[in-house]
Amino acid sequence: MMTWGTARKSGISPLTSPETVDEALELLAGGGPDTRAIAGATWIMRGPTRGEPVPARLVALNRIAELRGVEIGALSGRIGAMESHDRIARALPEAADLRALAVAAGASANPGIRRLATLGGNLCAVGFVAADLIPALMCLDARVEVATPEGRRNIDMTEFMAMRRAAGPFLVVAVRFGRSGFRTAHARTPARDYPVSIASLSMATDAEGRIADLRLAVGAVEADAKRWAGFEDRARGQAPDPAGMAALATEFSADFTPVSALDAPGWYRLQVLPVLVRRAFEQIRREG
């Protein structure tokens, strides 16, 4: 038997492990201002190295069965918020429309972190610029099931990115997406560890081989990943020629206000973006 640490004063434990979403929301709402939900805990636990102490109260989500599961059907898919990058990478079937997500889940950070860090954590870690899953999910046009004390909502990724900074307790339950005939690619640099620029692409072509529809999401350039609507609008109807697409990306890169951080200055993130766009189109072309 070990005893360690100082005696706790308040009745609420610094770490609670609810079994249901409702219970978790209650704990989050009642825990006071310095209460945070943890999933894989990798962002919170390394907080002290960023000068952010571990919050006073943690609500661990690992016992909530509803947050689990990777279910990929012929028409749609659902991934529970508590699934780790590693589990997602291994559970996704080999399919062109899921390739970007598989690469994002399988190449992020390092193996140890991939075994811990979850989908939900990736979605909710405000301040974590290098999140790989977010742009990949944007390309899938995924919808996020969010639970709040007021009830459940299914919102798209753009709306989610705005609401994740909002006050008030919420939990990500799962993401859902439709299966499509789109082909996808996830290009990032550097190829290992944490990226400083990400282009995630999904695309469908028409009978003439022109771009019928596409989604291009950009991560690690601005504080939050986003769909590049300006690029998408102009690319539709064009040939998916990698060099041409890179040129287009260069032309419209003023759409971004890049962040500068120690791992890369803002100009660099932007400068390599057209290259990543080119590589994403090349990957798709290569894989037919």
Partner: peptide, 24 residues
């Protein structure tokens, strides 16, 4: 890379911001 901030201090704080060679 070690960089010096506006206050004269080293900006890197640890393994996250100071990049040493990995096995790869």
């Amino acid at each position: 890379a070690v960089t010096i901030g506006a206050d004269g201090g080293i900006e890197q704080t640890g393994f996250e911001t100071y990049h040493m060679p990995l096995a790869q």
